[in-house]
Design a protein around this nucleic acid. Sequence first.
DNA 1: TCTAGATGGCAT
DNA 2: TGCCATCTAGAA
Length: 793
Amino acid sequence: MKYVNVYIQNNIAKIDRLYTYKLPENMELKPGMRVQVPFGKGDRNRVGLVISIEEEYKLEYDLKEIIKVLDYEPILSEDLLELGFWMKEKYLTKYNQSFSPLLPPGDIKVIQKIAVIKEEYVPKEDEVAFFKELEKNKYNLSFVDDNLQYGKLVRDLINSSVLSIEYKVETQISAKILKAVKLKEDYLSRISKGNLKLTEKQLKVVEFLQDKGEVLRSELLKELEISDSPIKSLETKGILEILDREIIREPYEEVAATKLNTLNMEQIKAFRGILNSKKTVSLLHGLTGSGKTEIYLKVSEEIIKEGGQVIVLVPEIGLTPQMIERFMGRFSGRVSVLHSKLSSGERYDQWQKTKNGEVDIVIGARSAVFAPLNRLKLIIVDEEHDSSYRFHNALRYDTVEVAEKRMELLEGKLLLGSATPDIITYYKAEKGLYDLFELKQRAVVGARLPDIKIVDMKKELIKGNTSIFSELLRKHMAEKLEKKEQIILFLNRRGFSNFVSCRSCGHVIKCDNCDISMTYHKNTNILRCHYCGSTKKMVSRCPECGSKFIKQFGVGTQQVEEEVKRIFPRAKVLRMDRDTTVQKNSYDEIYNKVKNREVDILIGTQMLAKGLDFENVTLVGVIAADLSLYISDYRANETTFELLTQVSGRAGRSQKGGDVVIQSYNPDNYSIVYASNTDYENFYKRELKIREQYNYPPFSKLINVNFSSEDERYIDEVASDVLLDIVKSVGGYKLEYTRIIRMLRIKNIFKSKFTLKVDPDYIKELTESIKGVLIKNKDKIEKYNIYVDVEFI
DNA sequence: TCTAGATGGCAT
DNA sequence: TGCCATCTAGAA
């Protein structure tokens, strides 16, 4: 007798584990196949994924049997299964968190029971109603479940072999549904008959709809800058109706073939080096515009020639159209693009195509690292420093680490590319763990580096200029508008939090222990460090210079937009941020508008920093370079350097050259200065020293242990028990830890956390300890309904 | 999360 | 005693 361990997809912490079933003697099964199993008290049918098959079963438990095998071939290859286990161990996640991303898109647990009727069967008189119903439901038997009479009839029909049941596993393809708004046909008569008085806003809505007919609700809200309530009240008055509209997403179009570019000497050296490297990981460090993409293409070509397959990861697929175009052009017909705007159905098709070996290259965002390619030999991670690859709330793994592991398992190569590599990555390359290749020339002959100037905003304030634009930036803007050249204004609000800064001297209130800016909590009027939990009273005067112009900082893109419109009323302005690009194709629209010069000034956040190449953009203005300096994160300087470098790269993509104006209250900050000189090496050296001084990564590894619950009472008690146990269980190595920090309550969920800091060489041991301690405290955690998660940051 | 089965109140 | 609403533990 054999025993099968099965993973059943769900996101309920309480039942997140593997389940063991007996394997019937005559059943053939391999790990990675899906099976149908009885589950729960009612033995409901569920789909499970076979994780492993064992010869013995030791525990006393009355095991159930597997009902049916659903696949002929494993849908998950061995390396992916192993990767799943590896992630689970490394990141201490739930099964669901480490196995779900591996599975085909859609919901594997939905099983349809389809009736198959013997062809020649003629229904008896009392069965006619049932057969009609059956036809109406397209032979799907789900309607029988709540009808006792039919249940008996179905059993009888099965016994007399008239009816047999076919189980169909369907990936749940949920169409994208958005709300649309439309005037009711008789709205005019309703208004006149009911003698209704409409408010100003309601009137605006009616007029808009008279003009446009049917409009998406989100569009209406945005266009008229109103809230939902006028629409709601119009609906209750019976003047308009709100409808569900299905949005159909278009898959990626084919593009024209791109021609081969010849490589310069530097590129050839890197290309050969990467191919011949004996190490799993190569880091390609090259300026923006130094031709990294060309090397990606060449290396991919070689790998494919040898019968391999390639995955290309990009930070956000919608933002890198040029990269995709070039791959599609070069490897026409053999590329699958996992676009974030694909519908689930299209996504599923792409998955199938990949699994069937119909493509050589998969391009996609982070989750494409699990693409089911059978001959995978190369993974390319473009802009490897990008934070979307790294461990965070929604992503319980580090994409680069996973890619490295997968390439180790398959004996392939991982190629990391960036103009501003992650400090940790560069450190590893420097230590010789990765091979390093540098590109220092620009690939396009004649393209000049932009002229970058830093403006001290404190001096502007002394001069009496309280506007958000410095004189220099305003002057440049006027010039470029005159010349009909285009301008990008950038506001790096990434990770924006409420830090407190002095407008006179630029001083920012930082934590005494952590060198990290403190967060202002408005309701309690205190400053708190989100790293160690220590607090300070909010100040009314700057502790540095005594000025009373000290307050929490915050400028929004909307504010910038208003100011631009005020100063340059005739300029055509477009704003691009999360709010304006949620709509389908809105990114492409903005892209095309800028490309066709329908826009003079483009205002936006970090989305602008990535991959936008426009010849006619000759001025980039950074409104407040400081904003990203004070996010409560040890990476603040790194993030600032990255953003400034990337956004500066948007100016002067052609022979026209360009200007960059960086406004800052801290013009001497090293990340700003080095970014303005495009000097990665020196930035790296300086940053590394500081990291060493404060023992931040790469010299340590940080782990957050989070406790959340709807019930406030026991969280801190349990958290401190766990912390104490972890500290007790540590042997032979040094562990730093913070106190227990109470976080802001979000959606009525209370959350507390503590942070552990450990030598990276002992991360495995510490992970094991945490795992052990969590198992030890399991009863307590479950009793008080506390959810624990571990973040490796 | 889902639901079989236990529990207990209440009408008959 | 039967019936239903509500609660609760367990999922292999």
